[in-house]
Amino acid sequence: MRDQDIIDKAKELAQLHEKRSKDPRATRVLGFLKAKGLLLVDWIPARPSIKFNVVDALWVGENVEPRVLELLPAVVIHFPKTAINVNKLPKQLTEIVDQLKLQAPTGPSYQGFTYEMFKMWTEFKPKDKRVVPLSEKKVMRSFRLKRSVASKLTELAKREHLSEGEIIERFIQ
């Protein structure tokens, strides 16, 4: 193929892409990711309070901005009320989401994105103070302690202005 033919074809595809990037599905999904500080896109306004269908997000990832696929598992985990119809995710992505929730160190890749890339976004602190990186999320534990130890723990927590859980965390870390 001659260079000029390649250039003409690329220009034609770029025009199609430009048209697709104005599709309402793209403006919703990209606008949300922009609002949360996960994606920098200057041609779309931020849309912080919307819901979107994961099928639309997959379409945007396939046709407008592939980085959406890289961010999608983290969005599904951190914003479960925003991403709807999660059951429509492809099997491989569902598996990745499950592995990420379990904080598994390794997992499958998807469309050129490695598991490490997906994992990195579950640890990122978006511009939304309600979102906590997965590794910092609290999990429930219950213990039986001797009365004397329990009293000492309460006393320590009061003195340090921390919760009892934070005292144990600090001791272990």
Binding site: E18, L30, L39, L40, V41, D42, E65, R67
Partner: peptide, 8 residues
């Protein structure tokens, strides 16, 4: 170019 960037 119409650029989109993740924040890394």
């Amino acid at each position: 170019l119409q650029l989109a960037n993740t924040v890394d």
